[in-house]
Write a protein that binds this DNA or RNA. Structure first.
Length: 560
DNA sequence: CGGAGACGCGCG
DNA sequence: AAAGCGCGCGTCTCCG
């Protein structure tokens, strides 16, 4: 389907191989046409971008069950096939664009991205979507593991639907609770002025005490790291930076004042009253999610910092009267993912049930905290300090798991790409990285001193990528399956369906469903079913279990 | 004046 | 205790 500037649109039936199955049809009311077709049979809508196109359907009260998102799937395929991305993240350097036909078929659609007011040529857009879709289906079929890559494409597309639906639903947010919290910690809200926000009373008080304690002649602005660093040095406190972690190790009366200031200033700047004004309305926080926004497949968000809500503010997330929140997170997801990925039998045994860190601790003869640190070091490439010894034990007891991440690290250091379990591919190294790490042609010439650190940095990235991206695969499949389970009992198109459970939040390995209190048990069952199905689809017959920790609560803060 | 980058810190 | 990975975003600061 394609949408025009008004309510009208174009629809064309498509066969399983992507070929048109009849002429395109102009419909005067696209939402109505979608709503009419959705209940009849197993419809999968093909469109350019759910992120851009679905919100409008939702505003018309129409939801869909399945889609193929040409932009998201195109991005997966381009990464797989080593083609440059149109808007590469990071340093902007990409490999040379591959001059394949597939890349060109994507190009005609770009003008519609501009969102300009010209009447778009809908027929041309529809043709471009059809061509790109058929091409993508062929490329998925040609994958070394078409079932897994097809699952990834389906989950990525479904994720875009879930994201738009969650934005539309919003996370229940009690502005009054949030405001009381701010007032209690910072003092009353300062008057709103045209200029920069005024400092609340408690922050002014702390700033004055900091200036006084340091014996500074002029007021110190703790928001300025440079100024603060100078004032600390003048007061006899020599630190490399003004980070909280650094300050915490210093014994000086100014430290507790600074730590409190930093914490409160952060709350005020990031999630204070102006955040409340900008992002919360009608009792809901409505962030915009960006599916596929992170190279690992995790979602990003735009505006409102949806994926960085401080734990303190979970108090403001309260279910509506008579409703409840089902908060579910995948316990110790990443180490379990590693266990399943590596097919490490002893490690899989440790991850078969219960507390993975405790089981690993028993296996290597360490305590739980040491086991956790050692595992995180293995996945992130940390050198470990104290964890070094536990890390060595880990290698001995779980050689397959250790080899798996070390192979990934070596691939990264050598400039190769790595893939997630479902086939999401990490970006290739930048041209700058290749130049930096290449061996000089002249053997007498010294290698760039930055070459080693750069290679190791990329090794840490690829080492982590295989785990983080595979965890994102699993979580995305779980989310898509949960969405389907929650919708199964509902009318096919009414969105929102009054009185029905709604997904309202997704944060990497955690979901929140807002539902009538009476539905909570069924939702918990749906969550567990979705996790079990995701495990089977993504990993087949693994021994590793992926337990969900679920809490049925009135307030998010009570979930853990 | 706006843009870019460093810094710092919230989340997983 | 922090680090090793991935992000978004606010403030400060410098630069053109």
């Amino acid at each position: 389907m394609t949408a025009g500037p008004d309510a009208a649109g174009l629809i064309c039936p498509v066969r399983d191989d992507g070929a048109p199955d009849g002429p395109a049809q102009r419909v005067p009311d696209l939402a109505a046409a979608v709503a009419a077709r959705e209940p009849s049979g197993d419809v999968r809508w093909v469109w350019r971008s759910g992120r851009l196109q679905y919100p409008r359907l939702l505003r018309s009260g129409v939801g869909i069950r399945r889609c193929h998102d040409v932009e998201l799937v195109g991005s997966l395929l381009r990464a797989r096939d080593g083609e440059s991305l149109p808007s590469a993240a990071g340093d902007g350097t990409t490999v040379a664009p591959a001059e394949s036909g597939a890349a060109r078929t994507d190009r005609p659609m770009l003008p519609f991205e501009a969102g300009d007011s010209r009447e778009p040529d809908q027929a041309a857009e529809l043709a471009a979507v059809l061509t790109a879709h058929a091409d993508q289906l062929a490329r998925i079929r040609a994958d070394a593991d078409p079932a897994r890559f097809g699952l990834l494409a389906a989950a990525e597309s479904a994720g875009a639907l879930a994201a738009a639906e969650m934005s539309a639903a919003g996370l229940p947010w009690r502005a009054d609770v949030h405001d009381r919290l701010l007032t209690g910690l910072l003092g009353p809200r300062p008057p709103v002025t045209a200029g920069p926000a005024l400092r609340p009373a408690r922050l002014s008080e702390l700033a004055a005490q900091i200036t006084e304690t340091l014996g500074a002649a002029r007021p110190v602005n703790p928001d300025s790291p440079a100024q603060l660093l100078r004032a600390l040095a003048a007061g006899g406190v020599r630190v490399p930076s003004t980070r909280s972690a650094v300050l915490r190790r210093v014994d000086h009366p100014v430290v507790p004042l600074l730590l409190e200031y930093k914490e409160l200033a952060r709350l005020h700047a990031a999630n204070g009253w102006s955040w409340l004004d900008a992002w919360v309305s009608g009792g809901r926080f409505r962030p915009e999610y960006v599916p596929g926004g992170v190279v690992s497949g995790r979602w990003a968000s735009r505006g409102g910092g949806a994926l960085q809500i401080p734990r303190l503010l979970r108090q403001a997330v309260v279910a509506d009267p008579g409703w409840t929140l089902v908060v579910a997170d995948a316990a110790q997801l990443e180490p379990r993912i590693l266990a399943a990925l590596a097919g490490d039998r002893p490690f899989a045994q440790a991850a078969a049930a219960g507390d993975l860190y405790q089981a690993v601790a028993a296996a290597i003869g360490a305590d739980r905290a040491q086991a956790k640190v050692a595992l995180l070091s293995a996945m992130y490439g940390g050198t470990g300090g104290d964890g070094g010894q536990s890390l060595a034990l880990l290698r001995r007891r779980f050689p397959a798991a250790a080899a798996f991440v070390e192979d990934a690290a070596r691939a990264g250091e050598e400039g190769r790409v790595v893939r997630s379990v479902l086939g999401r591919t990490c970006p290739p190294p930048s041209a700058a990285w290749r130049t930096l790490t290449s061996e000089p042609g002249d053997p007498d010439q010294a290698r760039d001193p930055g070459a080693g650190p750069a290679a190791r940095a990329r090794g840490r990235f690829t080492r982590n990528f295989v785990v983080q991206a595979s965890a994102a695969d699993w979580a995305l499949v779980m989310l898509a399956l949960l969405r389907t389970r929650l919708r199964a009992a509902q009318p096919a198109t009414a969105v929102p369906s009054p009185g029905q459970p709604e997904l309202v939040f997704f944060q990497h390995d955690e979901v929140i469903v807002h539902c009538p209190a009476a539905a909570a048990t069924a939702v918990v069952t749906a969550v567990e079913g979705a996790a079990a199905d995701a495990t089977r689809l993504v990993f087949g017959g693994t021994d590793v279990s992926f337990p969900m920790t679920t809490a049925v609560v009135g307030c998010y803060a009570d979930a853990k």
